[in-house]
Design a protein around this nucleic acid. Structure first.
Lengths: 352, 352
DNA sequence: TTGTAGGCGTTATCAG
DNA sequence: CTGATAACGCCTACAA
């Protein structure tokens, strides 16, 4: 409730002077400054509103969910990098149904609507630019050209992480999911496995489709059949992993599986143990993401690490550069893809 | 770049009319409305700035970190509840050093400064109220009376979750940490354990101190000594859990341990396995939080669940009620404490 | 060094 | 039903 005007009145100066003191600008008499500061110390002033300022020093971060630790990890990394560049971050959870670990579709509202809602909210709050992590735009019929194209045309700066929109001229930073699927599978092939299953996320999810392509490619390369019976789809998350693993184990048993996420892998491992199967002796498991816990479960999880820090750095730096009015290139296409890294731990071994 | 004025000009109407159409307010001729909508469909308009708006329908959520899954879980629960009440949420990660899972103190900046920075940012962005999860204010010398007292005096509405500020007249919603420590320990006592260790978070952290009090109480009740050698402190997080467990196992070996968080518990379990100790046959472990993964590790973790949904519900509802100008009680003290619930799974058993 | 005046993009008010 | 006009709370010339 207390505004600049109240402070000014109490200190017997003008609003401009208070503003100057607040913004630590030069050109204020020390005595005056102290008087204002004194009033400020007494009165409960809290700045509100945007004013005529253009640069707010705030960017928006949009993640599809928070249950999968990868997204908090991305959020932290992005935030840290942004802070280093002098930007504050506002985080939004768009609750993307198809990516949720629990597979739940919250109160039926379309996710795209939720994301649009958040974008609108952020923009209205004076955010200068936005980073979309795993945007589902990619899945929209028009590739997001409609809504996001408009934003783009209006000069809103954005960057996509793990999920570009080919139809749009937006810079994107991605991990190569196909290579991830390939590397995971090849690791198992090299260990000597012949029946390699895939505990896969929802079929409609692009990352899962890409990993599947990598999985097929590695199998083909090894002269092994990519039997559709070797794939089981389920929601991301541990419960989904257990479900999919169970389905796979009910059929002709694979000696190894790759999974769409570490959470799924942990669920799969749990299901294997539940059935009395020893990991990795009787079943090898590869995860994806390299969440912190992957190194601290038993057996420690072999997985593919996304270079989260580097990706966050690339994304934020690109956004910040575009935010600089001096540079602001016309939105030229920019795309960086990072190679996932195989981290071999204890959950994989040659077949018995 | 495109503003209300541009749309108005293109549609041949006044700014007010465009605003009315945008806000779905009644009293606009359908034909006019359609004309404006038509222009809106063509021009890339994106609303910016707060204007003279008072009610923004947005609240702020501040969490100390995102590495511990509890905080993302709280964030999601709070957000979901807020959405149901018609409020959007802006999430801020205040990177509280002392609570971080990795124990890292980011670039030396005082956390309190970071939190103040975020509060200022949120307020400037027109947030109506805020929920602080595990605020470190509690640890401030003045109990946060200075800075937060000012906010309070200025009519800023806030609610604390898990960490009240007794000096302040702010409603708070907490889980009873002391009871948590007590219940975990009693469970082990009832199982027949006599040497019960504590894989504990940082000594300066209030939740850890409270859990310790509960642990002592339960031991005393059972006529067992609360030997200081039975406690090992470490940063929250799996790595810390492993470190602390290791320290404990180097001394006279306890037959069971309770842990400050599930992440620590998982780290402790890992360390036990590394040393060839079987859980729960040779060592029982109790966690705290009941993160989703607790049910999906091997052995599944016995833990104390925080009623996150209920707590989120209580916190948001209280805040929203105070936001309603019709009610807005004078900030009367309000405090709700929830009882943690023991979830027995497979990581605890009678001593061998 | 200080204050006045003007601007930002929006909503609220009131006259027509 | 519509459009001036004032207001919001802030920042930034420009002038004193």
């Amino acid at each position: 409730m207390t505004g600049l005007a109240d402070i000014a009145r109490a200190a017997g100066v003008s609003i401009s002077t208070v503003s100057r003191v607040l913004n630590r600008r030069a050109g204020v008499n020390e005595a005056t400054r102290q008087r204002v500061l004194g009033v400020l110390a007494d009165l409960p002033y809290t700045p509100r509103g945007l004013g005529a300022l253009q640069r707010t020093g705030v960017i928006g971060l949009l993640v599809p969910e928070l249950s999968n630790p990868v997204f908090p990890a991305f959020a932290e990394a992005l935030e840290t990098r942004a802070a280093r560049a002098g930007y504050g971050s506002l985080l939004c959870n768009t609750r993307s149904a198809s990516l949720r670990a629990d597979g739940a579709d919250h109160n039926g509202e379309s996710r795209e609507l939720v994301e649009e809602e958040y974008v609108r909210m952020l923009l209205a709050r004076g955010v200068e630019g936005m980073v979309f992590v795993s945007p589902e735009i990619t899945n929209a019929e028009d590739g997001g050209a409609g809504y996001y194209g408009k934003l783009l045309a209006d000069g809103v700066q954005m960057v996509f992480v793990n999920g570009g929109a080919p139809a749009l001229d937006v810079p994107d930073v991605t991990v190569d999911e196909q290579v991830a699927g390939y590397l995971a599978t090849r690791h198992l092939v090299e260990l000597g496995h012949r029946r390699i299953g895939f505990v896969c996320g929802p079929a409609r999810s692009l990352p899962s489709r890409l990993k599947r392509a990598g999985w097929s490619a590695a199998l083909e390369e090894a002269g092994l059949p990519a039997d559709p019976g070797l794939i089981a789809h389920a929601p991301y998350g541990a419960a989904g992993g257990a479900t999919a693993m169970s389905a796979l184990l009910d059929g002709p048993r694979p000696s190894a599986v790759i999974c769409s996420s570490d959470h799924m892998a942990l669920g799969a491992m749990r299901e294997a143990h539940r059935r009395g199967l020893s990991v990795p002796a009787e079943l090898s498991i590869v995860g994806f993401d390299d969440i912190p816990l992957a190194a601290y479960c038993s057996p420690a999880l072999t997985t593919l690490a996304q270079p989260i820090e580097e990706m966050a750095r690339a994304a934020v730096d690109e956004l910040v550069q575009r935010l600089n009015p001096a540079i602001r290139r016309g939105g030229g296409s920019y795309s960086r893809v990072f190679r996932p890294k195989l981290v071999v731990r204890e959950s994989t071994a040659p077949p018995s």
